[in-house]
């Protein structure tokens, strides 16, 4: 079984929330991705499809629709830099430059040492604390160069 036993047990409970199996797909994909180092492999898509009585292509269509799902491996840490309007007005491009500078990654790419993937993302809902990025799922707001250095410097 490609899906871990613990995950399957978790999904068995998840299914009780909905009147049909398919509705558990997106929450389940999140969990699969979390447990797989931040991306969803073809094997995992097929396994989840089988678990939810879907065809693999239906899962694939959903995975590629949602920006939070990745179908390729990424670096150990993921920095999502918001570049939407409120952040752009307060220096999102400078944040992006600084993050790229510190990590060695290009926007959308992974640093040569494989530690960081840096991505630009649309509005994350931290507009009144702009500019911001999300590092491994945690929001970091009101960023400036010093703060960015401190945050990224603290990443192991």
């Amino acid at each position: 079984m490609v899906l871990k036993e613990a995950l399957v047990r978790e999904f068995d409970e998840l299914l009780t929330h909905y009147p049909d199996k398919r509705s558990a797909l997106i929450p389940a994909l999140h969990r699969v991705q979390e447990e797989n180092g931040g991306w969803i492999s073809p094997e995992l898509m097929e396994a989840l499809a089988q678990y939810l009585d879907l065809s693999a292509v239906e899962v694939f269509g959903v995975v590629t629709f949602y920006p939070m799902f990745r179908i390729r491996p990424r670096g150990k840490h993921l920095v999502n830099v918001c570049h939407n309007i409120s952040c752009d007005l307060r220096g999102a491009q400078d944040v992006l430059a600084k993050v790229c500078d510190l990590t060695g990654a290009t926007p959308g790419g992974t640093s040569p040492d494989g530690r960081f993937t840096v991505a630009t993302v649309e509005c994350q809902g931290a507009c009144t604390a702009a500019p911001m990025f999300e590092l491994d799922g945690v929001f970091h707001e009101n960023l400036d160069d010093q703060k960015i250095e401190q945050i990224l410097g603290g990443v192991r």
Partner: peptide, 21 residues
Amino acid sequence: TPQLTVGGLGSRSVIETFMDR
């Protein structure tokens, strides 16, 4: 026998099979 999907989002969408199968 679902085998095709619109993959991707918006103007980047393309018709795809699962992993080019």
